[in-house]
Design a protein around this nucleic acid. Structure first.
Lengths: 209, 209
DNA sequence: GTCTATACACCGATAGAC
DNA sequence: GTCTATCGGTGTATAGAC
């Protein structure tokens, strides 16, 4: 039987190993593609054999699950860190939030596929892993609500807009900047329709060309 | 050596078998999910064993490829059939085109995943299979161009809008009608920003609520 | 508790008999 | 053209060494 301090040490060590494995999985996923991640490669990168991973995770999907939770948790933290930096102008702040998500989703294909695209056959995130994603969405509703977007429909359209352009980036313009420009224009259209005040510095007059 | 008529008969028979296999693959894909399609099941459905499929297709991905081409070809035909039925009013016609794609993409999850989402690891459609998809896009540019949408940016935003809402339908509201309503509203916002004339019957005044 | 070696089940793909 | 048999590779279960 272990006394309390030793139990803590063991738990810490276990958690550290889990984090090592997840970190290795991210590296391999970015190298070989998220879907063709092989447990043997992940294990080799932490100095183990594939079956040993099952001491720390009950299945391959459990590793995906931990990665999913980590990615969304990291994004939630990033949004929280961004909020104090947001512009005082509603439309500008909403553009910043849109661009922030867009940048996060376009910076890392594997991460985006895991977070937002169902690309792994048979993988469904655990409710626990899904929680930060839900919180981020709620936070988005609040952030836009505080800036005059009261309709949930309009919020969902805003989300769709960003998601659609992220997909178009990865499909047609990976590495390019075109979709980022389109995003700005699209959010302006949407903000115009909602009657949000135009930005002071760059008056959009009418989004029309 | 075969004479010409017999060669045609053989080619016809082979093509018929290929179509049978593809049709069976669609059924299985809808049942078990597109990604977990198993060749054994497809073969069994046409009264064969798995290895025999390799007489007609050189790989599993080649079957996906034929399905991909078939789905986009079928959609191209549907668009061509729709064009004469489109409203004379530009905004209404564009809404019909948007709704038409939305309906096609939401009616069949497996088909949509194959056509629009990269869900099969390692599968990339052949240029030949991709051709009808390219034609449909060009046709879309023309269809909107004829109705006053001259900017390619605005066209791409329109496409993103529809794609984003299709994804949201499958993720959050499968079987529901909410995203279809949002689509109508979103296209109106977009059309307002472009300065397209409002519809005569249902004057949108301002899309704002 | 942690890791290893071995083995199993399942898949797509290939070889060769008929 | 279709079959049976088999290969190579994967995730995973388990027994046992340390």
């Amino acid at each position: 039987m272990l006394d309390a301090p030793n139990r803590d040490r063991v738990a810490e060590r276990r958690e550290a190993t889990r984090l090592e494995i997840v970190a290795a999985a991210w590296v391999i996923a970015r190298e070989s593609g998220l879907a063709s991640l092989r447990l043997r490669d992940v294990a080799a990168r932490v100095g183990m054999r594939a079956p040993s991973l099952y001491t720390h995770f009950e299945s391959k999907n459990a590793i995906y699950d931990a990665m999913f939770a980590q990615a969304w948790q990291e994004y939630e933290d990033a949004v929280i860190a961004l909020e104090p930096e947001l512009s005082a102008h509603p439309r500008t702040a909403i553009k910043q939030l849109a661009r922030h998500f867009y940048d996060y989703a376009t910076a890392d294909l594997a991460r985006h596929q895991l977070m937002n695209v169902r690309i792994i056959p048979g993988f469904e995130p655990t409710p626990n892993a899904y929680a930060p994603a839900v919180r981020v969405l709620e936070r988005g509703v609040e952030n836009l609500g505080r800036r005059g977007v009261t309709s949930r429909d309009d919020f969902d359209i805003w989300v769709s807009l960003i998601g659609g352009l992220v997909n178009q980036y990865h499909a047609n313009d990976p590495g390019g900047t075109r979709c980022a420009v389109l995003l700005n224009r699209a959010v302006d259209m949407w903000a115009d329709a909602l009657g949000l005040p135009v930005e002071p510095s760059t008056p959009s007059r009418k989004t029309r060309r």
